[in-house]
């Protein structure tokens, strides 16, 4: 995990440095607007230590991080730690709700499709899954707002507040993932249902319900769970757009805004937190494998 975090932050650091544009100029632009003078740009370069070589800057940043100090935003002067801790819960809430929606819709649609194979229900479900994967987030978001906020007036169109504010952004973000999960769940369950032990179970005279839910489901869940974990990264990616459209004060928006202004203290903070988050999620996915399939045992390999 340490390797992941160091790798990710180092990469972000290097990429931001390699990206065209003078960081000092962009920061000065964000701070002082259009009335820039070359003197002011040089001042920013010196006070923010941008004149040091890249490795020196990275090591200095890492040193601060080890002491629990993420620094302050270069454009607004706010503490990076407090900004991130403000936004992280909002994004976490959104991501959790989206995954919940995705699992709920995706798994159940997959099960229905697999058990009702080649019926009309299956076709509808598969078609909507393709639509769901193909639909761009921002477009779906606007369609949902049009329907639920403007036409029906049921849900607020933007902002953060009680649970009603969460529904539309989570639905937008969850749909794509739900569609993907449904497809994977279907094919996985179809495959499992064709196996010998399922035939045995059926031969014992078990009800279809018991066959699917008690015997087949647990084995069929491994691929969707893997994908759900892997998709978490894409969820954060989608959060950037969804957060902007719904005015959701999350990490994605913060990261994008910081990239525009080359606020590398803030970018590094966001990357650090995101990398840690992804590492933890991957760990959780691994643990869930062991629960789903007891044959998978993690142990140190012996020479």
């Amino acid at each position: 995990m340490l390797v992941v975090v160091i790798g990710a932050t180092l990469l972000a650091f290097a990429v931001m440095d390699l990206a065209p544009g003078d960081t000092a100029e962009l920061i000065a632009f964000a701070r002082y607007g259009e009335q820039l003078t070359p003197r002011e740009i040089e001042r920013v370069r010196q006070t923010e230590g941008l004149d040091a070589p890249l490795p020196a800057r990275y090591v200095r940043w890492l040193g601060h991080v080890v002491h629990g100090d993420l620094g302050t935003s270069l454009t607004t002067g706010e503490s990076v730690t407090s900004e991130i801790s403000h936004r992280l819960p909002a994004t976490a809430q959104l991501a959790a709700a989206s995954i919940l929606i995705a699992l709920l819709i995706g798994i159940s649609a997959g099960i229905i499709s697999a058990t009702q194979r080649d019926t009309a229900i299956d076709s509808i479900s598969r078609l909507s899954a393709i639509l769901g994967v193909a639909m761009p987030n921002f477009w779906l978001a606007l369609l949902l707002i049009l329907l639920f906020s403007l036409t029906l007036g049921w849900l607020p169109s933007f902002g953060k507040g009680d649970i009603r504010y969460l529904i539309l952004p989570a639905l937008t973000l969850g749909t794509g993932m739900a569609a993907l999960l449904a497809r994977i769940m279907r094919s996985s369950l179809v495959e499992v249902l064709a196996q010998d032990y399922i035939r045995t179970a059926r031969a014992k005279g078990l009800s279809e319900y018991a066959v699917v839910f008690k015997h087949a489901l647990k084995n069929a869940l491994i691929p969707p769970v893997t994908i759900a974990g892997l998709q978490f990264g894409r969820l954060l990616e989608g959060a950037v757009i969804v957060e902007s459209i719904f005015g959701w004060p999350g990490l994605g928006r913060l990261l994008v805004e910081s990239i525009f202004t080359r606020d590398f203290a803030m970018i590094q903070g966001c990357v650090l937190v995101t990398a840690m988050l992804l590492a933890v999620i991957n760990l959780l996915v691994d643990i869930s494998y062991a629960w789903l399939d007891p044959r998978i045992i993690y142990q140190r390999s012996r020479p």
Binding site: I145, S149, L150, P156, S157, F158, P249
Partner: peptide, 18 residues
């Protein structure tokens, strides 16, 4: 002052009376 970064979302928020 409500912060709505997306221009289209801002228009819809007005139409919806938000």
């Amino acid at each position: 002052f409500k912060i709505i970064p997306d221009a289209t979302a801002r228009v819809i928020a007005l139409e919806a009376g938000d």
